[in-house]
Nucleic acid binder design. Sequence first.
DNA 1: ATGTATGCAAAACGTTTGCAAGTTG
DNA 2: CAACTTGCAAACGTTTTGCATACAT
Lengths: 137, 137
Amino acid sequence: MTGTWHEQLRARGYRVTPQRQLVLEAVSRLGHATPEEICGRVQETARGVNISTVYRTLELLEELGMVTHTHLGHGAPTYHLASEADHVHLVCRGCGEITEVGPELVEGLVSRLEADLGFGTDVRHLTVFGRCRNCRP
Amino acid sequence: MTGTWHEQLRARGYRVTPQRQLVLEAVSRLGHATPEEICGRVQETARGVNISTVYRTLELLEELGMVTHTHLGHGAPTYHLASEADHVHLVCRGCGEITEVGPELVEGLVSRLEADLGFGTDVRHLTVFGRCRNCRP
DNA sequence: ATGTATGCAAAACGTTTGCAAGTTG
DNA sequence: CAACTTGCAAACGTTTTGCATACAT
């Protein structure tokens, strides 16, 4: 986290473009958004933006550590600002509801994987499927 | 678990076909197999079998609780016999290695989700992404 | 005989690519 | 002005669908 994201881009030889600003802004405002949803949002401001640009930008922003993605269901992945993504997702197979829980819930698991196997968990990518209170048999 | 799977199918009005037997057998022998791999295996015995039949059969077998799937990477999901699937997957982002760990490693997480939120976890679908010992920075 | 299951071909879906034209620094 | 970025269109891998035919019960 050194400098603004404009500086982060330039420092690595990338350029600041309107498209990139808009995609980052859309990820920030939408949260849990698929590439298609992000593209829709961006196009509200700049009509011509193509979905392939959105994909390329998301890949870049993820590489820079500004956004992350998770798979919450069968279809497209969803994107988050990395700075707001420090949580685990619960997905209910019954009603589809998505709940975010703090990372402390998996602290035990994470430290056991670390201690027993030397495995470093990507907590932000973790999604737990199951059934919520209301949808249980 | 009442009766053979032939009986389970018939009891629900489904039919026992060679294709279904072969798909179940392929899932059993291959483990961690994608639909395409399963299809390949099935075709070693019965040439004409179509991939769409494999998809339809996997969906059916999953509905019946005989197989489960997980997403171990970006591409196609992989299938397991449900009876052999009682483990959690670790996927290393560095080398791609897949490790299976016993369900006891997530016992703490599962019971906390249960106690705190009434959430029933599908342990078999759980996949943890991260970096293994050899691929850590 | 009846209705389920299959093969085929085509469409749907999400994502990636090559390339010429446009923009950024 | 040179390099990076974009839009477009086409290709890609995976999954789903409609429909006529074949098969299990």
